[in-house]
Write a protein that binds this DNA or RNA. Structure first.
Length: 371
DNA sequence: CACTCGTGGCT
DNA sequence: TAGCCAAGAGT
């Protein structure tokens, strides 16, 4: 059967017989060599959901311990819906892209309130839930509910681009429907979830981005870029911008009650996580004494009077996707504990610090100061 | 649509 | 090392 979509047909002209043979080869390999992973032990939609959100832009070996802990702390979707923000963010601490976990709770509350705790089973309905996009909706629908819809993630883009020599730039939004159409035509009707996971396992084994081994792939006979030695020409993607350098003072202020931490704003980087207050060095005037400018700005923000001094250590450097932070620590010690009613922050002792969700960059600062 | 949003591993 | 990459989604 030819592809109804003309654009997909340009790249996929396999016969039904060939498609079935491809599915058979891929699934045979998956049954023998597929990875055993914690979230593959059953088809519980909540398990699939949590693992898929964690796996967004994140490697499997990073996710495994977070997944295990998350299932202990929030065993069911109702536990997730009812969790406190602190406990929720703490379970995600260090995993990055923190909006994922807040969106996950919104979705859990939608399941609870709009679906009476029962998961919708179609990809279209699943994609209505906050934080669930086309990939994750397809993954849950196929793995948990057996719906034959292709889950197009980075692996699927790379695998299909190489197998079929698809020269579309996968970073362009217009390319997704083409890959979706092709994946939907290739997917096994009998085992759609296993098919999707097999494509991903293939993309992390023989058809990796770097150092692929297409000659050892279980579907090498179906691999059109391997046939002419152009594997590394696919997929086509445009380059990312490099992170911008930003220079901050990180203010480490100690009172008898503990160290001063600021809860970051609800939007933007590291939203609602706790950090030392930062001062952008670009906002300071180099021709004036820096420490007195820092004290003035700190007083304006917090209402607290403090005298800062530099500490002899290398700046803490931390790279995000779009920013590279260079943090120089300034220390101040207070003999009493000022009130913080004007400032979204708290004095945290070591116990409270351990309970508060901190981004990795703050954990680096902690290591400098508290060890 | 282009941009934002983290982190760790690898070369 | 600096850059690239990894089971994306929201705006």
């Amino acid at each position: 059967m030819a592809l109804a979509d003309d654009f997909g047909a340009k790249y996929l002209n396999w016969s039904d017989t060939k498609i079935l043979a491809f599915q058979k080869a891929l699934l045979k390999w998956y049954d023998l060599e597929g990875r055993r992973l914690p979230w593959r032990s059953d088809h519980d939609p909540y398990h699939i959901f949590v693992s898929e959100i964690m796996l967004q832009q994140t490697q499997v070996q990073t996710v495994i311990p977070y997944y295990q802990n998350f299932m202990t702390v929030f065993p069911t979707v109702l536990d997730l819906a009812e969790a406190s923000e602190t406990k929720l963010l703490k379970a995600w601490e260090g995993l990055g892209y923190y909006s994922r976990v807040r969106n996950m709770q919104k979705a859990a509350r939608q399941i609870k309130n709009e679906y009476s705790g029962n998961w919708p089973t179609s990809a279209v309905q699943l994609q209505e839930l906050t934080g669930i996009g086309p990939y994750t909706a397809a993954a849950i629908a196929s793995i948990a509910f057996g719906q034959p819809v292709a889950a197009i993630d980075g692996n699927a883009f790379r695998v299909f681009a190489r197998l079929l020599k698809i020269d579309l730039d996968i970073t362009k939004r217009q390319s997704r429907p083409v890959f979706q159409t092709i994946g939907d035509h290739l997917i096994s009707q009998e085992r759609p979830g296993d098919f999707n996971q097999a494509v991903m396992d293939l993309g992390t084994s023989y058809l990796t981005a770097k150092n692929p081994e297409p000659e050892n792939s279980p579907v090498r006979e179906f691999d059109e870029s391997f046939a002419d030695g152009t594997t590394l020409d696919y997929p086509v993607k445009t380059l990312k911008a490099k992170p911008v350098d930003l220079y901050y003072y990180a203010l480490a202020v100690q009172s008898p009650a503990g160290w001063l931490f600021e809860q970051r704003p609800a939007k933007g980087m590291l939203a609602r996580l706790w950090m030392f207050p930062l001062i952008d060095r670009a906002d300071l005037d180099d021709s004036q004494p820096l420490m007195s400018q820092v004290a003035t700005r700190f007083k304006e923000e917090t209402g607290v009077t403090a005298e800062f001094r530099e500490v002899q250590m290398k700046p803490v450097v931390h790279t995000f996707t779009h920013q590279k932070w260079h943090l120089e620590i300034l220390v101040a010690e207070l003999s009493s504990t000022p009130d913080l009613s004007l400032f979204p922050g708290q004095w945290l002792d070591s116990t409270m610090r351990a309970e508060s969700p901190l981004p990795t960059v703050q954990l680096k600062l902690n290591r400098q100061l508290f060890t």
